[in-house]
């Protein structure tokens, strides 16, 4: 593939989003990045969306729709925050704890899936209820508050969010593109039966996938918790909403992934959504309007993906 075509494929969507967002904000007379707080907000959004997108896509690419990832983020952040407050641990340890606990809870979700052999959607829903209930029980329903802990609530910054983005992305690329596990994962994606016949062990691969997705959600839970200094409880599938923000960036990531590493595609998808999110903030867009715009963007992009060749033909005919 030609370099220009690759660059075009990689940067068209984020660049187009940036141009549109800048143009609209200029018309509205609003500067997109007016304060440091705007930068922090943008990077937090990118980090959040990228982590959820990666966590969701790891299993979804293999046909496993895991509804429990939001509850994994909730439970891991609740336990890590509780331990960190009790033992006055530094913020780095809380992040590490959250990631490790997320990996454990993700692994457990996977274990239940491979043991009970029910459809992953059902197992995901069951685990979501279980983890939400567990988080509720651990805190007595009162959630966790650490507003007095200046170190923990002082975490949000462009530098810290950038570090998380880079570390998570590097780890995921390393694991999925440069290890035997990653090769097996890709082999299973392209042909499950054949891969199993040639000796690739599907169950351990699945469990590790769930574990990695959980670790990513542990980091996401940590970001959400340190943003407000409080973790509020949710029940009855309230944690599921977290994953819906990841669909559009996941599809964008998949498209960009044709031209570059698909994980970087997810990052660029998250950057695009981060820009849109910041535009909502800066232009004070009503939440109902936000939902309409986000839904339209998703539908339009899916229409484009499903009719890509037709669009290309139309462009060729136009020439």
């Amino acid at each position: 593939m030609k370099m220009t075509k690759r660059l075009f494929g990689i940067f068209t969507i984020p660049a187009a989003v940036l141009i549109v967002v800048l143009a609209v904000s200029r018309i509205q007379g609003v500067a997109l990045f007016a304060t440091e707080g705007n930068w922090v907000s943008f990077f937090r959004s990118v980090a959040n969306v990228m982590l959820v997108t990666l966590a969701l896509s790891i299993n979804l690419n293999s046909g496993r729709f895991d509804f429990s990832i939001g509850s994994v983020a909730l439970l891991s952040s609740v336990i890590s925050a509780t331990i960190s407050i009790q033992y006055q641990l530094p913020v780095g340890i809380m992040l590490l704890l959250s990631v490790v606990l997320g990996a454990v809870f993700g692994f457990l979700s996977g274990l239940v899936y491979v043991i009970v052999k029910l459809p992953p959607i059902i197992v995901g829903l069951a685990m979501a209820l279980f983890y939400e209930g567990l988080a509720f029980a651990v805190t007595g329903g009162y959630g966790v508050s650490f507003v007095n802990n200046t170190e923990l609530v002082g975490f949000p910054s462009v530098r810290n969010y950038s570090l998380i983005i880079v570390a998570a992305l590097a780890a995921v690329i390393l694991i999925f593109d440069y290890t035997k596990f990653g090769y097996n994962y890709k082999a299973l994606l392209s042909g499950q039966k054949v891969s199993v016949h040639i000796g690739i062990r599907e169950i351990p691969n699945t469990l590790i996938c769930y574990g990695i997705a959980g670790a990513l959600m542990g980091a996401q839970g940590f970001i959400t918790a340190t943003n407000t200094g409080t973790i509020q409880m949710t029940l009855n599938f309230g944690s599921i909403g977290a994953m819906f923000a990841a669909f559009l960036p996941m599809f964008i990531g998949g498209y960009i992934g044709r031209y570059i590493n698909d994980k970087i595609g997810c990052l660029l998808g998250a950057v695009s959504m981060g820009l849109v999110s910041l535009a909502y903030v800066r232009m004070d867009v009503d939440s109902s309007v936000q939902q309409i715009i986000s839904a339209l963007l998703l539908v339009c992009f899916l229409i484009f993906l499903n009719n890509e060749q037709k669009f290309k033909n139309l462009v060729k005919q136009g020439r």
């Binding site: 707080g37 907000s41 937090r44 959004s45 959040n48 943003n227 981060g274 999110s277 909502y280 936000q290």
Partner: peptide, 19 residues
């Protein structure tokens, strides 16, 4: 700021308002 959207844009608005 109104609502309880609890998404990135909502938290961004809250942060923006507080600052």
């Amino acid at each position: 700021v109104g609502g309880y959207d609890m998404d990135d844009a909502w938290f961004g608005k809250c942060g923006e308002m507080a600052q």
